[in-house]
Amino acid sequence: MRPLLATLLLLFLSAWDVGARTIYRCVQGGTVSLATAPEPGSRCKAVEVDDNAVQTPNLWGNFGVFSGVLYEREQDGKLVYSTRRLPGSREFLKFTVATPEGEPAHPGMGKVGKPQLDRHAKQFRAAARATGVEDAWLRAIAHAESAFDEHAVSSKGAQGVMQLMPEVAAQYGVRDPFSAEESIRAGARHMKSLLQRYRGDLTLAAAAYNAGMAAVERYGGVPPYAETRGYIERVLALHARYREAMGPPPERPAR
């Protein structure tokens, strides 16, 4: 069974012409909606979704389980669908969807913990500005990877704040893997590359960061590793907490 967006995506796809695969994630006034066409007045991002993929992307965010309405309306002479009630909309159907809830992952991952905003704050801000990767997302990765310890070394040989494997560190020109500044800068560049590769899908980017791109490609989505799946849940939970702690207020589903 496909997680997170399975039900809603099937509802969308049943309403589209055969072969259509584009979903728009639209944000307006801190609220999120999914639509089959860009919404007037919203900032929308197009995401191509393959309904045959093993793992469908979580386009919502970390909202837990919530219920909403899929609306139908005419736009530019075509029927379009959206979870936001816009002028001229009529109710098409109601749905319930489950998304990450911002809680700890499985017991083996331990507690998520509180945001640590004072750890390497200058370095995270600089890396976020240089790469365009969200500061809160970088901190979530570092929190899950090393608890911000620049001297951390994993059993597999990953090093530093961002727990870079030696070959990844070398790829990004890291001279001292235990330098917080170098590790965070390289980790941000690596994450930017992953987000570009997976079209902004945080779940797949986190999966590749943890298990490697080869594993993601091999399984056509999130690998069936308990460690990786727990890691993803923890990072998504941490991301929600860092976004809330750092502001602006967290997004919420549109009504």
Rank of each mutant, 00 (worst) to 15 (best):
F63R: 10
K114W: 07
A136K: 07
G102W: 05
V97K: 02
A140P: 11
R139L: 09
G102N: 04
Q28N: 13
R85W: 08
L79Q: 15
A46T: 03
F95R: 00
Q55G: 09
S42Q: 09
G64V: 12
G113F: 10
L70I: 13
F124A: 04
D50Y: 09
Y81S: 10
P40I: 01
S82R: 03
L138H: 06
S67T: 14
V32M: 05
Y24V: 03
N62S: 15
E39I: 15
S82C: 04
A98M: 12
Q75D: 11
E103P: 02
L59Q: 11
A98R: 15
A53R: 03
G102R: 04
E72C: 10
P107D: 04
F63Q: 10
L93T: 15
F66H: 04
P40Y: 06
V112A: 13
M109K: 13
H143T: 05
A126C: 01
P38I: 03
A98K: 14
N62P: 05
K114R: 13
G61D: 13
S42K: 07
L117P: 02
Q116H: 07
E91F: 04
D76M: 08
P57G: 05
P104H: 09
R129K: 14
A46E: 02
D50L: 06
R125T: 09
F95Y: 15
Q55A: 09
G88E: 01
R85Q: 14
Y24S: 02
T96E: 10
E134P: 07
G30T: 08
D50M: 05
